[in-house]
Computed example of a mutant assay.
Amino acid sequence: MTAAKAPVTKRATPNQAYQAILELIVDGQVTPGSPLRLQELADSIGTSMMPVRQALRQLEAVGVVEIIPNKGAQVRPISTEDLLDTYRTRIALEGILCHRAAENFTPADKERAMSALEEQRAALQDDDHSAARGAHREFHYAIYRAAGTPWLLRSIEPTWLNSERYRIASEHDGDMLTLRRTEHEAILKACTSHKPEPAREALRSHLISTVNHIDLSLGQRLTILTSGPCGY
């Protein structure tokens, strides 16, 4: 495993190690199916093995890492069925959040979401894809927090993190990034206008479009799979 060092100290907490390892995975520096060796990871991110061991358990809990008895940890492999299941689940759960957010959306929610979009645009201009991913997440979560359903918000974390592993290819596609911006603005407009069903559908279209970019035939399958009222 070859990876750039992250700014983590010898006394890093498990959460800091978690964030550093997760960044290596979603940035593609550690590829799906690759082994995650404790000492190599500790050396790579500049910490001891204890927080790394705890971080790997946390990453296993959210489904990004597998810990195999007598073998150790590895990045969970990606597959067609995993991608479809991930995005189908996102459409179902995040669609509910979008629907409820549109019912409750305030000017402050709009300001937070617009600020995140601007931060994403600026980060992409600077070719800072890590910051762009963070701003992209903040845009969606600014909307989802407006739904006022903390437990549902917590439930989307595993599929969100898993989908980040599939999104990496589109991060460097200028035309696709322009399309994503338009889709984000459509979601925000529906929420700002207090239109729950259009907000849900804009989110669904956005996620299907993301899958289309990975594989058009998969996007077509996802469209069929999520044609029901709840995305299932």
Rank of each mutant, 00 (worst) to 15 (best):
E111Q: 14
N70C: 06
A73P: 02
V75M: 07
N104D: 08
G63F: 02
A131G: 09
L93A: 11
R112M: 14
A131Q: 08
L93K: 15
Q120W: 01
S115H: 13
A102I: 11
E60K: 12
I67W: 00
Q58K: 14
P77L: 12
D82H: 10
P107Y: 14
D128Q: 04
S115K: 05
L84M: 10
R57S: 06
I68R: 05
I91G: 00
R121N: 09
L93M: 14
G63L: 02
V64H: 02
L93N: 13
A73M: 08
R112L: 14
D126Q: 09
R76C: 12
A123H: 01
L117M: 15
T86V: 12
I67M: 06
Y87W: 13
T89W: 05
A122P: 01
L93V: 04
S79T: 10
E81D: 15
M49E: 01
L124R: 12
Q125L: 10
Q58E: 05
D126H: 07
I91D: 05
P69I: 13
P51C: 05
E66M: 06
A122E: 09
S130F: 08
R90L: 08
H99R: 14
D85T: 14
E119L: 13
A61C: 04
V62K: 08
R53F: 06
T80Y: 01
G95I: 10
A55R: 04
A55H: 02
L84I: 10
L83T: 06
Q125C: 09
K71V: 15
M114D: 10
P77E: 03
A102N: 09
G72K: 09
V62D: 10
E118H: 12
Q120G: 03
V64Q: 03
Q74L: 13
E118V: 09
V64D: 04
I68C: 01
S79R: 11
A55N: 05
D126A: 15
Q125V: 08
R76E: 09
D85Y: 08
L59A: 01
L59I: 07
D128Y: 04
A122F: 04
V64L: 10
I67G: 05
K110C: 02
L59F: 00
L84H: 07
A61D: 10
M49G: 02
T86I: 12
I78Y: 09
K110S: 04
N104K: 15
F105W: 15
H99V: 03
V52K: 00
E60N: 03
E119N: 14
